[in-house]
Amino acid sequence: MIELTERRKEILAIVVREYIATAAPVGSTTIAKVHDLGVSPATIRNEMAALEEAGYLTHPHTSAGRLPTVKGYRYFVEQLMETSSLPPREQRMIREKFDAAGWEPEAWMHLSASVLAQVTHAASLVTAPKPSRSQFKHLELVELRDGLVLLVLVLADGSVEQVRFQLPEARSQEELSALADQLNERLAGLDRHAIAKASLPTIAPVPQVVDRVLELMAEVDRRHGGQLVHAGLEHVLSQPEFANAERATEVVQVFERREPLWPILADVAWSHRGVRIIIAGEDRWDAISDYGLVLADYGAADTRGTVGVLGPIRMPYERAVSVVEYVSGLMSRLLRELYGVA
Rank of each mutant, 00 (worst) to 15 (best):
I2K: 14
E3L: 14
E6F: 15
L12A: 08
L12V: 01
A13L: 09
I14G: 04
V16C: 09
I20V: 15
T22M: 15
G27Q: 04
T29R: 12
I31C: 01
A32T: 05
H35M: 07
H35K: 10
L37R: 00
G38Y: 02
V39F: 04
I44H: 03
A50N: 12
G55N: 07
G55Q: 06
Y56E: 07
Y56M: 11
H61C: 05
S63A: 14
L67K: 02
P68C: 08
R74A: 05
Y75C: 05
F76A: 06
E82D: 13
P88E: 07
P88I: 09
Q91L: 01
Q91Y: 03
F98I: 10
F98A: 12
A101T: 07
G102P: 12
G102Q: 04
E104G: 09
P105Y: 09
E106D: 12
L111G: 02
V119Q: 01
T120S: 11
H121I: 13
H121M: 15
H121V: 04
L125T: 00
V126W: 00
T127Y: 01
T127D: 11
P129Q: 02
P131C: 06
S134L: 10
S134W: 03
E140K: 13
L141N: 00
V142T: 10
L148M: 12
V149L: 10
V149I: 12
A156H: 08
D157A: 04
G158A: 09
S159Q: 08
E161Q: 10
Q162W: 09
V163Q: 08
R164K: 15
P168H: 03
E169K: 14
S177H: 09
A180Q: 01
L183Q: 00
E185C: 06
L187Q: 08
A188S: 12
A188K: 13
H193I: 13
K197L: 14
A198W: 06
A204R: 03
Q208S: 13
V209K: 04
V210M: 09
R212V: 01
L216K: 09
H224D: 11
Q227Y: 05
V229H: 00
A231R: 10
G232H: 05
E234W: 12
H235Y: 15
S238T: 01
Q239R: 14
Q239D: 02
A243S: 14
R247K: 15
A248T: 06
E250V: 11
V251Q: 01
Q253R: 15
F255V: 03
F255T: 06
F255H: 01
E256C: 02
W262Q: 07
I264F: 08
I264W: 03
L265A: 09
A266L: 11
V268M: 00
A269E: 06
A269S: 08
W270V: 03
V275T: 07
I277A: 01
I278R: 02
G281W: 01
R284D: 02
I288D: 01
D290E: 13
L293H: 02
L293M: 11
D297Y: 07
G299K: 03
A300R: 03
A300K: 02
A301S: 13
D302C: 11
R304C: 04
L310E: 00
L310H: 00
P312Q: 04
R314W: 02
P316Q: 02
E325Q: 13
V327Q: 00
S328D: 07
S328K: 06
M331E: 08
R333I: 06
R336A: 00
E337W: 11
Y339L: 15
